[in-house]
Amino acid sequence: MYCNVADLIQTPFKWGGRDKSGMDCQGLFLEVMRRFGKNILDELPKNYSSHQIARCITMKIISGEWQKQEIPAPGDAVALAIDPMLPNSVQHLGVYLGEGKFIHILEGTKVIISRIDDRYYSRKIKGFFRWNG
């Protein structure tokens, strides 16, 4: 499945942002998933911390709403542990686009596409997850 995200590239980071004037990783994640036809309700906390994201995602995986995938497919969530103080928990989300690429945004940056085999990100990826909703 193909998803056009070209218009999102270079969107600036904005806490709580949900449109092209500014987005955070949650807003970008929800928008890209919507474009893949996955209408995920905005269930992550609005003013979230690394701990809240990790707890929310873990509960969704335990409940079966998300299933871990060995090999990602376009539209799968890319879960990352970016915080070196929390190396075993998820604090960041991206969406797999295919061909080894995922889209995401980090605080202080703009929306970018990175490779899952990138030396930095490959060490941070905790898994790929498919939504069953």
Rank of each mutant, 00 (worst) to 15 (best):
I105Q: 05
N47Q: 13
I61D: 04
I103P: 01
D42E: 12
G37P: 04
D83L: 00
E99I: 04
W66R: 09
S114G: 07
V95M: 03
L97K: 04
M59N: 13
A81D: 04
I61Q: 03
N47W: 10
I61L: 07
R119V: 12
H104V: 02
W66P: 00
S49T: 15
D42M: 01
M23N: 02
F36W: 02
G94L: 05
G94E: 00
S89K: 14
P74A: 08
L80W: 03
H51K: 14
M59P: 02
T58A: 14
K101F: 09
K110Q: 15
D42P: 09
R34K: 14
A81F: 04
P72V: 10
L106S: 13
S21Q: 14
V95E: 01
L28V: 08
V111L: 00
S21L: 10
E70D: 13
G37N: 03
G75C: 03
P87R: 12
I116E: 01
Y121K: 03
W15P: 11
R18T: 13
I116P: 00
N88G: 05
G108H: 10
G37T: 00
M33Q: 15
Q67I: 15
G17E: 08
K68Q: 15
G100C: 07
S21Y: 11
I103A: 00
A73H: 11
S21D: 14
K46T: 11
K60P: 03
R55T: 14
S49D: 08
S89G: 08
M23S: 06
S21C: 07
